[in-house]
Amino acid sequence: MGPRSWAHWVNPTLIAGLALVLLVIVSEWVLPVFVDTDQIAAGSGAPSVVPSFGPTPDLAAGFVEATPDHPLGTDGRGRDMLAVLAVGTPRTLKIGLIGAGLGTLIGVLLGFSAGYMRGRVDTVISTLADTAMTIPGLAVLVVVASVVGEIGVVSMGLIMAAFAWPMPTRVLRSQVLTMRERRYVVMARMSGSSTPGVMFKEIMPNLLPYLAASFTESVAGVILAVTSIETLGLGSRRLPTLGTTVNNALEGSAVFRGMWWWWLPPIFVLAVIFVGFLLLTNGLDQVANPRLRDESL
């Protein structure tokens, strides 16, 4: 089995996913050039107050505030929605990348150790990973976040890593176990015995697509988790993220006041992110496992 050819990586699903994710990431650099990010402060624009108790809430009344200064309008407390998105999106993405990155790293180390050493080490690591997966992460996260209070992007990412490692651990462990079987004969012939270091270098290139798929899946998982606890009113409160924006909208009864421009944009961006990472994951799965391609819908 030689190194995988680059042709494998040219995959429509993968490219579509990459394009979506890049779109979000690039807008992080582009938007602040045009948008005054200071307008994330409450009261930057006139608040869009749509009466919530009128017989028919007047949509137009709220959107009147969508002036050239505020192309997406302002939220119930006068924050400019475009600025909120411009600041909030990269922050949410960063938490996802940090959490998934660190989680995958831990997963690689644990999964490799389990698959390589087998025996008791494997039993301990596998049991821990399996157990951790059946503990509802959100429950524990809420406990942590409620105690810590204000949490910055980096610390939030680090906390999330604690919940992002079991999946990559399992993926890597099972892959190392199969690779080990397959490689065993070759390795034995080549060098007699192989050290973990050699083994690691041997195996890693082949595992790259699996790892990448597991990483992108984790990013989506972390963003989902962090957005979830933010919609409960936890996490970062000083600067917006997509989750806190949704929470603000919920607290402001945005849906019942017809203020769709408050709750829909953050959800739309989140949807693009989730679909993008899902496509990336599926694309990478297909690269890792060409058989899947023939079976895909």
Partner: peptide, 12 residues
């Protein structure tokens, strides 16, 4: 395996 995740989603 996924019950934990489902429960987390339910809170929100």
């Amino acid at each position: 395996i996924t019950l934990g995740l489902i429960a987390s989603g339910f809170v929100v």
